[in-house]
């Protein structure tokens, strides 16, 4: 991903250390002791070896470094055809989304806006995620029905709808896949709450006279009136 492995590891180490130091809970500690004591020295010998055919049938995941990418190819034009047949009913002809179905294209430069438009092009950091997710979970209601070439073509089409690829004859394949850079790739960073939100660890919070004046109501859910069973129907589209 965008961040160095060292940083990832550092954050994990911190998280791990925290978990260890924060485990003074008696019941959990006792539970652990019992489990450790009961653990046999050798393996239990349960389960059986997975066959290569079984692993390849289920192992469809793709990582940002290209691990797991199957051989295959597809052009923007081919992707357009597959998309109109398989995807456009929900996602719109150009990935703009029908009704409340997810928008897949557009939204560039909106992430600081009041109402950000988080799409494949404007938000997703890795192209591998598009391949992985489409291959495993789409079309919605008919998952894992697309060939690898279909998924390459659809991925190429989504790149085109997001103006990341301009040429409709462009062919995406397992050889050039890693050359595509996503616009928002560098804008993600590991959880930093323990640093940035350190001030929420408060030794002794205020108990008396914590604010100078009485609070005033600034917003009411009943004014928005979108709760099921409220007298008017939902006002959100």
């Amino acid at each position: 991903m965008s961040r160095s492995v060292n940083l990832v590891n550092a954050c994990l180490a911190a998280a791990g250390a925290l978990l260890l130091t924060l485990a003074p809970v008696q019941s959990a500690a006792q539970q652990m002791t019992v489990r450790e004591a009961a653990k046999p020295a050798s393996k239990l010998g349960l389960g059986r070896e997975a066959l290569p055919e079984e692993i390849s049938a289920w192992d469809i995941d793709v990582r940002p470094d290209g691990k797991g990418l199957p051989p295959g190819k597809g052009t923007v034009k081919e992707g357009d055809q597959v998309f109109q047949a398989q995807c456009a009913a929900c996602h719109g002809e150009f990935g703009e989304g029908v009704g409340r179905w997810p928008v897949l294209a557009g939204g560039h430069g909106t992430l600081k806006a009041d109402r950000p438009d988080k799409t494949v092009g404007s938000f997703w950091p890795d192209l591998s995620t598009v391949f992985d997710y489409v291959k495993r979970a789409m079309p919605y209601g008919n998952a894992q029905s697309l060939s690898n070439d279909d998924v390459y073509a659809l991925t190429a089409y989504l790149l085109s709808m997001n103006d990341i690829i301009k040429d409709e004859n462009f062919e995406l394949n397992d050889k050039n896949f890693l050359s595509i850079k996503m616009p928002n790739a560098t804008a993600f960073y590991d959880d930093d709450r323990e640093v940035v939100e350190k001030h929420f660890w408060i030794k002794e919070p205020c108990m008396k006279n914590c604010r100078p004046t009485a609070p005033k109501v600034t917003g009411r859910a009943v004014s928005i009136d979108v709760t099921p069973d409220s007298k008017a129907g939902p006002k959100v589209d």
Partner: peptide, 30 residues
Amino acid sequence: VGDKPWQTREETSKYTDLLADGRSRKHTFI
């Protein structure tokens, strides 16, 4: 079992936390 995170849809498009500066926290597990 691997040596790096997969950056799946559920940890990139979803379950990442967009902040006011346009950047996003990821892997906010706890």
